[in-house]
Amino acid sequence: MMIEALLEVKGVTKRFGGFTALDGVDFLVRPGERVGLIGPNGSGKSTLVNCIAGTLRNEEGSIRFEGEDICGHAAHRRIRMGLARSFQIPKPFASMTVLDNLCVPLLYAARKHEKLAPGRIVEEAVRILELVGLAGRAHAMSGGLTQVDMRKLELARAMAAKPKLLISDEAMAGLSASEVDDILALLFGLKEQGVAVIMIEHVMRAVMKFSERIAVLVAGRKIADGDPQAVVGNAEVVKAYLGE
């Protein structure tokens, strides 16, 4: 039996001048699913994320979220529907404390689809900070955080939007093994709340451990999509990664 898709990307094409960054990409995520998205540098992973999140507009193809066509929606409308993303390079609101950083999506996104009394905003922000292990830094200025803490804040801020789908864009690059495990545990925790996750990652150990399914992008095309073990064994994928 087929479960209805949460996110359905069909034939999405994105060009920059003469360069085709995405070429007819199909991609599907079911509710609560954990999907890994891998590919060499410049293969179009980030472009795909940007098209899904609404920070770039795709020229062709359709993107549906919970059945609704969202191609015309601005990014802030998409996140209000429950489609959150974290940034590869952390983008904290540097003039605010860590706690206030979370209040922004709580006020502007989460409240749109979850009943959240105004008085409970801070309480909820603290709860999320405890979850990611940043509670001790709640009142620190976010601009002064360490790289690891900024990554955590990035994830926490995406979580604060109360998403149904969270796209984690290379949250683990450059982290130590135990820090990777911390973030993995966090993302596994989301699964328990029924949140679907797209993980974009170069740390293969993490992707393999986390994903129920893996999709591979190479030069703007999806060349494989399926069971992690099978995908990694796929001859075309091996070729793309190791060269000929």
């Binding site: 802030h76 993303r85 940034f87 983008k91 609101f93 540097a94 996104a109 801020r157």
Partner: peptide, 12 residues
């Protein structure tokens, strides 16, 4: 602070 991050946090 960061317009893109603001938009992606639901700020219109």
């Amino acid at each position: 602070d960061d317009e893109l991050a603001a938009e992606c946090s639901g700020v219109p």
